[in-house]
Design a protein around this nucleic acid. Structure first.
Lengths: 113, 113
DNA sequence: CAGACATATTCCTTTAGGCGTATATATGAC
DNA sequence: GTCATATATACGCCTAAAGGAATATGTCTG
């Protein structure tokens, strides 16, 4: 998860991922579409690959990269517990206020849950 | 989006977010639970706040940080187009092979990763 | 007011990572 | 084999950003 997030955190890599959303591409195609230099694209693809976000298949002398759904599903799964939370009451601040003060202080502002 | 991702890419910050998933916390509580030093926690919270991932409310001399659902929803929304894709056929490689070669050569690479 | 507590900010050092250039590796055509 | 093409890797440079220590800011109590 950590690896996935830091892979996506780099702007050019995020662009690559979004490019690959449409369809798998060879390195050279990514190079020309993003206007980056070939070595940087290869390096970024390496990082994305290590993070499990893309996979490669050779086709002649070129390498076709495509997205791996699994990695994105992992990210999606990470969001799961948060989804549950933000549908309930997300402003539990008042509860915490009570926790922190706790010792039956008076509540002069009159706020309640 | 970019900002959200790079904020989450830092391991300690990701931990802070996961801590705050349960309930809002004061800075000092985060410090003791994560075993980090107070200035670093404040700095990380600053980054998270700039990215819109958390918000603060003062409570006496402490500051209560809590998650902002909105930011996570944004991330969730970013995944949307991918969700659609990975439910269909995600392995369009063969299509692309045909596109690139145009003629049907043999297909026996068989190598993985 | 002083003094405590909680948090934020500043300054400095160190490290991680991105970019550019050059080069290495691999495959196909001849 | 040589050459061309496609991609990967290595090396050095440079900037962003993380960590540490000290200090500033802010708030409460007496």
């Amino acid at each position: 998860m950590q690896e996935i997030l830091s892979a996506l955190a780099e702007p050019n890599r995020l662009q690559i991922v979004e490019l690959l959303r449409r369809k798998p591409l060879a390195v050279g195609e990514i190079v020309e579409r993003l206007g980056l230099r070939q070595p940087q694209v290869s390096k970024h693809l390496r990082v994305l690959s290590d993070a499990g976000l893309v996979e490669v298949r050779p086709l002649g002398q070129q390498r076709i990269y495509r997205l791996r759904a699994q990695a994105l599903k992992e990210l999606d799964g990470w969001l799961d517990p948060y989804r549950r939370t933000w549908n309930e009451r997300f402003d539990q601040l008042d509860d915490v206020l009570r926790d922190l003060k706790g010792k039956d202080k008076e509540r002069k502002d009159g706020r309640r849950k």
